[in-house]
């Protein structure tokens, strides 16, 4: 039931919101007062948010530069500058950090691509087709995600063990096996997000394409997916980060150090009884967060661009 206070969603062209679009050229410079009014306060809010977001991370950064550092003592913040921890990351054969990094990237990208594809397909079906059980299905997918996973490790191990006996390539200690498990979670809230976005793409577009003789698949792959690029990128980023940070499932599946991911590997630095190596751990955490920042940096323009409008008009 949509409450009356909420206006009905609009079906227009999914143009980027003009005043908010990054592609709009910056406004001509005016007086400082105007700057304060338009951008100044935004900077203030942004800076406050940055302080909140980065303040614990500063500790990690400081710890990563201090070979004997701890995470608690604040007066020691940036008292030592040394790259030793970063060098250590790549020199201890017990902790093959470079392997972990590469594995995480491979698993992360593959999972992101796979789950966006699977999710987008499902979202397209939910958005464009009318079939029995559609709403129940959509609801069911989201509800399934709510299952408390705390105990799942026993079941996942059993499943993978059984699979190992038949298909060793997707079984225990195989990265492909891990990716498949992640793909199992591809249908869910992400599907819903895409479903919502697809719904904002007017049906008239598909219909006119259909009249021109385009097939369903063609419409989906060449038009819908292009038009919904921002959300696809957001989802793949979310999926990438989620994969990168997963510890529970990854640590069940991957046991050989050279095959493990950053999340499992890094955890081992601090999970040694009583002799945690905070410095190296912090350095590793900083390096492992970098790809996300860099990727987001480059993908931003696709997320906030007016690409959609161009495609619709064409």
């Amino acid at each position: 039931m949509t409450s009356p206070a909420i206006p009905a969603p609009v079906t227009g062209e999914p143009l980027a919101w003009p005043s908010g679009s990054d592609t709009t050229s910056p406004e001509p410079r005016r007086g400082p007062q105007h700057w304060l009014k338009v951008a100044g306060w935004r900077h203030l809010v942004g800076l406050l948010a940055l302080v909140f977001a980065l303040f614990p991370i500063v500790f990690v950064l400081s710890g990563s530069l201090n070979p004997t550092g701890s995470l608690t003592s604040p007066d020691a913040l940036f008292s030592v500058f040394s790259g030793q921890n970063y060098l250590d990351l790549f020199s201890d054969p017990r902790y093959p950090f470079a392997d972990w990094f590469r594995n995480s990237m491979i698993i992360g990208f593959t999972t992101a691509a796979g789950s966006v594809f699977i999710g987008a397909c499902a979202a397209y079906a939910f958005s464009r087709s009318r079939f029995r059980g559609r709403r129940a299905g959509l609801l069911g997918l989201i509800l399934l995600q709510m299952f408390p996973q705390v105990l799942a490790y026993v079941a996942i191990f059993l499943l993978l063990m059984t699979l190992t006996e038949v298909f060793p390539a997707i079984g225990l200690d195989q990265q492909l096996g891990l990716i498949m498990i992640y793909l199992g979670g591809a249908l869910g809230t992400n599907t819903y997000l895409m479903y919502g976005f697809f719904n904002t793409i007017p049906k008239e577009i598909d219909e006119s394409a259909k009249i021109d003789g385009a097939s369903d698949a063609r419409i989906f792959f060449t038009m819908i997916l292009r038009l919904s690029l921002p959300i696809l990128i957001v989802i793949s980023l979310l999926s990438f980060i989620g994969t990168l940070n997963d510890f529970m499932i990854a640590s069940i599946v991957l046991t050989t150090p050279e095959r493990q991911t950053l999340a499992i590997g890094l955890y081992q630095y601090v999970n040694v009884s009583f002799s945690q190596n905070w410095g190296v751990f912090s350095a590793g955490a900083i390096l492992s967060a970098l790809p996300v920042v860099i990727i987001f940096w480059f993908l931003q323009r696709y997320i906030v661009s007016g690409l959609t409008s161009g495609a619709v008009k064409g």
Binding site: T68, S70, L71, T72, S73, V272, S273, F274, S275, Q276
Partner: peptide
């Protein structure tokens, strides 16, 4: 915490700590 005690001992801020072989190296 373990972290606090270890750091204080390493910094020479405390003369005595109860600890074990895992900290010998540091």
């Amino acid at each position: 915490t373990a972290d606090v005690a270890k750091q204080a001992f390493i910094n020479g801020e405390v003369p005595y700590v109860i600890s074990g072989p895992w900290n010998i190296e540091d």
